[in-house]
Write a protein that binds this DNA or RNA. Structure first.
Lengths: 333, 333
DNA sequence: CTGAAAGCGCTTACAG
DNA sequence: CTGAAAGCGCTTACAG
């Protein structure tokens, strides 16, 4: 495997000149550059990235730590983040945390080891008590709902507002027995507690009594979790006419679970999700949802991180919340 | 940021001993190890991976180059590959090629990917003509249907056999006007040509005439592509009673497209896909499909690659084809 | 516009 | 069981 020195020798220049050509530094004569490029081509030379990283002290790579790579939500978000980072000349390395608190913390320390220039961390397992652990020298942007007010740049979805709008939408469609399928973290800061707050507020505003038997908890925010939750609601005789679901993936499982019990959507029950996944555009019925503006999330996450990487990042980190859009489709028609 | 030398100084040992502790080499006295670990802890030391990689000449990381990170198929495959590689002590870095031939080639040669010990490449843009370009010194396993007989380890899905079984299944269910929704590469080696061959063979075996108007081409193997293909079939008055779809994602779009035209599945038309994605288990109707044994694909891909990375990989590379299972669900009931 | 020298932080033979 | 020395392949000031 040829090295930069081999190229230098072949081109009759110093290693430094080769390096300058490689890194597109301006002060190289066109004729010299030509000679170097030809030598690179002839020898089939490739930069040794490990050596470059070691010497330069950076990698032009940002880490993106997600709970699950197979989740459509994170797949679609990763795709957007990769596109945005690519435009800025950065690569994205995807790490899997398994939604585990310790893995999320070690994603932070390991990004120093891995020599990512910065980290975008989707925090699920972390809680408010871990706030201070986020005070590190690793340039970082945290996504998710589990930590607010920490000393890092943080982007949250419009959880409370979004679910509030979703619930009002069901009420406007005539639903009165409105269930919610949600996760099990109702009593700590989480996607579940925030989205539940929006649901409760909407019901209260319209004078509809909340009924604990209309809350169906699923421990996993998956389609299977949604399916089983729907079974429980129906089997308990809850007589629901609308269901607010914590995510689109759960909502698609809920629709499936209702079908298992012979109930149709929106005929018997109206269903709305959250995320605006591609899947919900093609399901039968197509899924009404809250679009939390994933493009902006991705763009903001990358841009905030790059600003941290720039010289003199002196401003205070803060919490950002994106806007949303109610998307009406067949499932609430 | 403390270095290994700082740890050595703090523990009163040589750098080499710290390195031995870090790499779990056996010849370190327990008491010395303790001292070193304590120093590591106190200083908050982290290995500099760039330096380690440079010196060791390997990264314990394998690259997985996929067309699209947001595709459920690749997300689910990546998840399996990550799990398998993790068990073997390797990390996986996901690269996006955009299904582009040049990007697939540069995944093999680029400096960036030089930092992987080996590469799993999902080839879509590459063709048979590129066979010789795969003759590199990069340890590599190629997945996909676009290149057979190249001098690399290669894993293909049971395309022809799988679609053959899927088509027979529709015939057994009573379908006679069976359409296929496929990609546009019917005349070169591709997923489309192989799966089409299985479809044609099944029809021929049962004495059903093939009808070109029953082939619906979609340029993108997406749900949207499937939806539009279904529209074209219906709008052309094709009077189909069964549709073999090239992938599950396309099949879900086809079901959606039929719904757009007021047709139900399986009542008016039976539909079957290929891949056994999670999405198809929760759709309404749930999707019959060919399960190409993704666990085995992932396991074989990682194991073949690791064997190539071991000393003396002297055997001939060859093409592997996994087995399949017909999964009967509601869409063909 | 180009070069000689130093050094990023590790691990690997080679000794003892 | 432990150490001293060399070197992996680059880039970065510093000169000229």
């Amino acid at each position: 495997m040829p090295t930069l020195h081999d190229v230098a020798k072949a081109a009759g220049v110093s290693p430094m000149t080769v390096s300058n050509v490689l890194n597109q530094h301006p002060h190289v004569r066109a004729e010299t550059r030509e000679r170097v490029l030809r030598a690179i081509d002839e020898l089939g030379y490739r930069v040794n990235v490990a050596a470059r990283n070691l010497r330069a002290g950076r990698t032009n790579t940002i880490g993106f730590a997600v709970p699950e790579v197979e989740s459509p939500y994170f797949g679609q978000l990763a795709s957007r983040i990769i596109a945005r980072a690519h435009d800025a000349g950065y690569r994205v390395a995807i790490e899997r945390t398994g939604a585990d608190r310790d893995n999320e913390l070690s994603a932070i320390t390991s990004s120093r080891t891995r020599m990512y220039d910065g980290l975008i961390l989707e925090a699920v397992g972390l809680g408010s008590a871990d706030r201070d652990l986020l005070h590190t020298d690793v340039p970082m942007v945290v996504l998710g709902e589990s930590v607010f007010g920490a000393p890092v740049d943080h982007i949250a979805l419009p959880n409370e507002e979004g679910t509030h709008a979703a619930t009002l939408h069901l009420i406007d469609r005539g639903c009165r027995r409105i269930a919610m399928v949600l996760g099990d973290e109702l009593h700590r800061l989480s996607v579940t507690s925030l989205r539940h707050a929006g649901y409760s507020r909407a019901l209260a505003e319209r004078g509809i009594a909340t009924d604990p038997s209309l809350l169906a908890v699923t421990h996993e925010l998956t389609a299977e979790g949604g399916r089983l939750a729907a079974h429980r609601l129906v089997d308990a005789g809850a007589e629901v006419d609308g269901i607010v679901c914590i995510t689109d993936t759960v909502a698609l499982g809920v629709i499936r679970g209702l079908a298992d019990r012979g109930l149709t959507v929106p005929g018997d029950v109206r269903v709305i999700g959250f995320d605006d996944l591609l899947e919900g555009r093609y399901s039968v019925p197509s899924l009404s949802t809250i679009d939390p503006d994933g493009d902006t999330v991705a763009q903001l996450a990358v841009d905030l991180l790059l600003k941290r990487l720039a010289p003199d990042p002196h401003w205070e980190p803060r919490d950002h919340v994106t806007s949303f859009r109610l998307v009406e489709r067949e499932s609430t028609a």
